[in-house]
């Protein structure tokens, strides 16, 4: 590579790196500094890990972390299984039709999905009305509470509605490509339907599925809107907890909010690294 090329690459990358470096990394660095208690605006200049000690030792944080892992894990797991099943059963359908059907939920803002699903699953929603019409329930409160509930069903349902198509499209692309051809080979070599899935299709699509699931997990781990709208009041998921601490009138709570933010960032960055690592291993084939 010539020196000219190197200069050119640096210049081409500079604007994007600047935007992300200042607004994102700078923001994270500021969050880190504030999490260490350094807040000259309110006259605090000594640095300590007090906020981390407080956060990591508190029952609230533990509950919140467990809830976050549960919501992200359940949403990702359910979405992955449903997506693989959907892709397997739809792979012979018209590419154009399935593209439209799957792209729609992907493109719809999460907020709209949450509102629509809330109107379906709430105790006076479409689902409850259907149940009443079928004589299963008499009054709204007899319908199971799926919003603001302990099990975060409404949140998980919304994520599943949004993320199944995302993973399914990844799987569909693999199935219509090389996995489909390899399946034909396996067939002529005597593999039964189950053997073809277990020995050929599954291993071939697995890395793509894992990568897509990692993205979904990282996203559902750090997302704010849907749990804020459809979640219970305690415990809340981590980003909502950070936001609530942040909004507290007491500026002294700020290091705690920032410590939670830093922890969210560290966890999701680790997932990002795993994702890229997987992508690179795939690229090497």
């Amino acid at each position: 590579m010539t020196l000219g090329d190197r200069t050119k690459i640096v210049l081409l990358l500079a604007p994007a790196l600047l935007v992300i470096g200042v607004l994102f990394s700078g923001g994270l660095a500021a969050a880190l500094v504030q999490s260490l208690g350094y807040l000259p605006a309110i006259g605090r200049t000594e640095v300590s890990f007090a906020a981390y000690r407080e956060v990591l030792g508190s029952r609230d944080f533990l509950d919140s972390l467990i809830l976050t892992l549960y919501v992200a894990g359940a949403s990702t797991g359910i979405s992955t299984v449903l997506a693989v099943l959907a892709a397997l059963s739809l792979r012979r359908s018209s590419g154009r039709v399935s593209a439209v059907v799957f792209q729609l939920p992907i493109t719809i803002p999460h907020l709209v999905a949450a509102v629509g699903i809330a109107l379906v699953v709430s105790q006076t929603g479409l689902g409850a009305r259907l149940a009443a019409a079928l004589g299963l329930i008499g009054e709204p409160r007899e319908f199971p509470a799926l919003l603001y509930d302990r099990y975060s069903i409404g949140i998980i349902l919304t994520y599943v509605w949004k993320e199944v198509p995302f993973i399914a499209l990844v799987v569909l692309a693999a199935l219509r490509g090389v996995a489909g051809e390899l399946e034909e080979v396996a067939r002529t070599l005597g593999a039964s339907a189950w053997q073809r899935f277990w020995y050929v299709i599954f291993p071939v699509i697995a890395p793509g599925v894992v990568a897509a699931s990692l993205i979904v997990f990282a996203f559902t781990f750090g997302a704010f809107e849907i749990p804020y709208l459809l979640g219970q009041t305690y415990p809340t998921i981590l980003p909502v907890m950070a936001y609530n601490e942040y909004r507290a009138l007491d500026l002294g709570a700020r290091p705690v909010a920032m410590a939670i933010n830093v922890l969210i960032a560290v966890i999701t960055a680790a997932i990002a690294a795993a994702y890229l690592r997987l992508g690179r291993d795939l690229g090497r084939g």
Partner: peptide
């Protein structure tokens, strides 16, 4: 007879080896 029981092995234009 489905393909898997025809004992008709096929070699394709691409090698299509199982990558894993």
């Amino acid at each position: 007879t489905p393909p898997e029981r025809r004992r008709a092995a096929m070699v394709f234009q691409k090698p299509l080896l199982f990558p894993h």
